[in-house]
Nucleic acid binder design. Structure first.
Lengths: 342, 342
DNA sequence: TTTATTTACGAAATCGTTTTCGCAGGAAAT
DNA sequence: ATTTCCTGCGAAAACGATTTCGTAAATAAA
């Protein structure tokens, strides 16, 4: 029924508990013969060490936490795969926590983690996060944390990001080259570093091409698909010829709004989105995306965290890394055919 | 730096460790005044009990495991939300494990879980799973398990499923009513209970309408999008007028294949898919789906698991539940216009 | 007044490992 | 022949909480 423990194992082998433990850990103190006996017995009896006893004694849990806003977002689900692949290799376990983009959830989660349920934390902050005391407090408690994608700039630890500024600039220039000069930027948060960096890249591209940025060109969306649909419909009334959506889940409301308003993509308005949606290529028109290296970012973040866990004196603060995104040009930003002058 | 423990807390309060522990657990043995003092001190010093010590002593971890094939699938990401919502309420933590549809991964994960890292398990089996010894062994170790969506029929525990058979029948009949009589079924596994039940529902509908089922009408896909694209292209050469895809990730290869072969949906072939994709409605044509109550299923499965954890003598085997899916009819299965006879 | 009961707390055992330390006994060195 | 050094193992002390049991004082019952 319940699991066998090391004492019982020792009793059956007529050895002491400490000898068995050492044999299982392949200690040099134990003869090869004894080791073989112990391992054979352990396998036969299906002995698995109690993880809580090990953690309590060894002060390491073999758990890491993954703190993210949402899981129903392709960036995060791909990143999880990257993280899981590393964790599995290191024989670590992954605890998943969702903030649902709410700061006080994030705060409560990190507070709980301070107790040591996990050895380290991988995190992407919520849209609302401005304060960072909860993160500082965790790190001060000796729990290393690596940010990926959505980071807190002021925290001195590793940040795995992508080139949001540069790629947003490139993407905006792409729209400009395709003939746009009234481009709207759909943001979701005034505080989120990544979308703000994307916005800065967009501004840079406009400035470089002497396009004036009007206040109305920056539109803030919310979390619900329905409200975003309304917000986008409103935004489209300003007759933009290009739209950049800073997050994936604005795609559906955008396509719907265009369809409702009989606005044609890309003829009337060109559209591109920061997205990892696999299905972007079968949308109609197929969607031009800025695609982040989600799996890779997860993998690198996890690898770094494990380095910090394995090596002492490993300074995470010196390990930030930027992995480039790619602009995948598809039909939603195709140039209009030039009607030849008569 | 490191967390304060109960001994230090007791020292500062000039109380014994046991008194402090009891006060924190609101024991009747402790006076209100002392309780107040202890709670105040604990809050001030940011005391959080070491979860491993508690788990070791109390023989419960406050962890549950979620074992699923993939996270990059809308059904599972929505189900995770449902599960997380319950876990959070119960102050439990969720460990996530991915099998990537590989049986031996599933086996290794469950073997590890037998040691007691978690108090209970929520699981959706991989495509490859036929044997069930790993599950039995876990349950025999006293760890309750609840299946959701993809279940093992022969294991005597709670199964949260949806009406795969009935809804597949309904969906197939819908295609028949729309004028199809050569309908192909895209399956992914010979062993997976849910897609097989869907297949049975499809067969029933065909039989009810006196449509002969040819061997070639059942097509098996694989895991990679690219190979599925080829498989589907091949299948389309049989000129079906209807296609049912039993899992979500066949949508993209199907649309691509049709586009490549210049086959029009729904004029040349009507298509529907078992899917929770939110953007089904903005595909072109918008996609008719059989949509499972993913969030609800996750939530119910988790709720049931917690009941089993809280109550003794709660018989999970008697708690299986079926929650109906819905057929969301959109343009990909629209009837052809009837060309009036001259 | 004596005895029973309640109240409020502390000492110590316990959960299952890991690790430090000690100690035999044999081998090697002096 | 004595001392030093390995080798292989066991006893016991952690890790930090919970819980059982014991007990002194205060109160209630007799």
């Amino acid at each position: 029924m319940t699991n066998i423990n090391i004492r019982e194992l020792a009793r059956q082998l007529k050895l002491s508990v400490s000898t068995v433990s050492k044999a299982l850990h392949d200690s040099h103190e134990i003869s090869d013969e004894t080791k073989k006996r112990v391992l054979a017995s352990a396998a036969r009896l299906n002995y698995i060490p109690n993880p809580y006893a090990s953690s309590l004694r060894g002060r390491r849990s073999k758990n890491i936490a993954l703190v993210i806003p949402e899981v129903a977002d392709s960036f995060f689900s791909l990143a999880i795969n990257g993280i899981e692949s590393v964790a599995k290799e290191k024989e670590y376990h992954v605890l998943i926590y969702l903030t649902h983009e709410i700061y006080r959830n994030e705060e409560a989660i990190l507070a709980e983690l301070r107790a040591g349920r996990v050895d380290g934390v991988l995190m992407s902050v919520s849209r609302e996060t401005v304060q960072t005391d909860h993160v500082k407090s965790l790190i001060e408690n000796g729990i290393p944390l690596v940010f990926f994608d959505r980071v807190c700039e002021e925290i001195d630890t590793a940040r795995i990001t992508t080139n949001d500024f540069a790629i947003a600039c490139t993407a905006t220039e792409h729209l400009i080259k395709q003939g746009c000069d009234k481009i709207i930027f759909l943001n979701v948060s005034r505080t989120l570093s990544i979308t703000n960096r994307r916005f800065e890249g967009y501004k840079k591209a406009l400035a470089d091409h002497n396009i004036v940025l009007n206040e109305e060109d920056l539109v803030f969306c919310r979390t619900g698909a329905d409200e975003n649909y309304e917000i986008i419909k409103n935004a489209l009334r300003m007759n933009p010829d290009g739209v950049i959506a800073s997050v994936e889940n604005l795609t559906a409301p955008f396509y719907k709004a265009c369809s409702e308003l009989k606005i044609k993509i890309p003829e009337d308005v060109k559209f591109l989105c920061f997205s990892n949606l696999e299905i972007a290529s079968i949308l109609h028109p197929s969607l031009t995306t800025v695609t982040q290296p989600a799996f890779e970012m997860g993998k690198v973040a996890a690898t770094l965290l494990f380095k910090a866990l394995e090596k002492t004196n490993f300074d995470l603060a010196k390990e930030s890394l930027e992995i480039p995104s790619s602009l995948l040009i598809r039909d939603s930003t195709a140039a209009n055919k030039i009607i030849p002058p008569v």
